[in-house]
Design a protein around this nucleic acid. Structure first.
Lengths: 133, 133
DNA sequence: CAGGATCCTGTGCGATACTG
DNA sequence: CAGTATCGCACAGGATCCTG
């Protein structure tokens, strides 16, 4: 068992609940994209550069099991499946934008501190500098 | 190499930037706790139920390298080290609260859908139910 | 009290190939 | 076009012991 403990976690760690559902490399990205509107499997894959067919499929199924996304399959000859956010999934809008805003701010700071080297080897984004917005 | 690509990622995925820094099981929890104010290693460990000495140490060092937390060591005989958030780290406040809010809402929904079984085996939090805020 | 080193394990994530 | 099965690696996360 890994993270089937949503309703099982103590009161104090609601963020842990959220992270357990949105954790991983792709979940948030998928959600963020679906916030723009429902779309097909193929469209999603095209939208997530780097994700494999298998991974997208798996993440989608997990999100579905978690009640975040809804799956609508059309009984056609060329299979067509549309994914969309459930109401609770749509409410991730706030999380997504907060993450986006901070991410942008952080990257800006990181770029300012290490214009040509990312931050791999200690290039921390200058704590007391560019972050003053 | 895993995630030393902060300043290296394309424009569209700021959330990926954020997730790469805050991903993992503990980062967000540590940040969330530090948002309450600076505190010592021991206090943090006591505050994070389940985290090991080693893990906390490692996560803290990673967060420090990422410029999220600041470390202040006192040259005393019983070593005393205080951790706090850097300015950019403190700005995670919004992310943290968004996550908390959604997490709470999600758990509420999950509990409503599966009052006695979590959601391990398909207990998704009723898409069209309690989520109507 | 803080933190590093070593060892071990589960699983997240990915490449490829096959099915309907 | 969408989904699944198998295989495999690398890494996140953890237990334990050792140092200043």
């Amino acid at each position: 068992m890994a993270r089937e403990t949503v309703a099982d976690m103590p009161e104090w760690c609601t963020v842990e609940v959220a992270m357990s559902v949105l954790g991983g490399k792709w979940k948030m990205l998928i959600v963020k994209y679906l916030l723009d509107g429902a779309c097909r499997f193929g469209a999603l894959q095209r939208a997530l550069p780097g994700i494999t067919h298998r991974m997208l499929s798996r993440q989608l199924r997990e999100l579905e099991a978690d009640g975040i996304v809804a799956r609508r399959a059309y009984a056609q000859v060329p299979p067509k499946v549309e994914y969309s956010l459930t109401p609770i999934g749509a409410q991730l809008c706030g999380v997504s934008s907060a993450l986006e805003e901070w991410g942008g701010r952080y990257r800006r700071a990181a770029s300012a501190a290490a214009p040509a080297a990312g931050r791999a080897a200690g290039g921390a984004p200058e704590p007391g500098g560019t972050s003053g917005d």
